[in-house]
């Protein structure tokens, strides 16, 4: 079971590290990361495996959303099915 973590906002030091640390703490495995910085705007998309996540998925969503607010960026954590449903027939 996979989820997609997206981070959008102003670039600062250690965004990826902080998100990755949170993931590791709850046994969420990072499968793939794509990241770009355009004119100071940071955009990262991370595919993660949540099969062995040690906390309920909704709590992971809350933790990362709060972390995003702390860093001044917008973090979305969404189950991959929403993207599959919307963009694949």
């Amino acid at each position: 079971m996979n989820a997609v973590i997206t981070v959008l906002g102003k670039d600062t030091v250690g965004i990826l590290a902080k998100v990755a640390t949170e993931c590791a703490a709850v046994d969420v495995n990072i499968l793939e990361v794509t990241q770009s910085v355009l004119q100071g705007m940071f955009a990262m998309i991370m595919f993660v495996d949540i099969t062995n996540c040690s906390v309920p998925f909704s709590r992971l969503v809350d933790t990362l959303t709060d972390k995003g607010e702390e860093m001044g960026v917008k973090i979305h954590v969404m189950h991959e099915d929403i993207f599959n449903a919307m963009h694949k027939i």
Partner: peptide, 16 residues
């Protein structure tokens, strides 16, 4: 694999 354009499009629809 889901492409990043689709992901950002979905997020934009929800956020904006």
């Amino acid at each position: 694999m889901i492409n990043s354009h689709d992901i950002l499009e979905t997020i934009n629809m929800i956020d904006h």
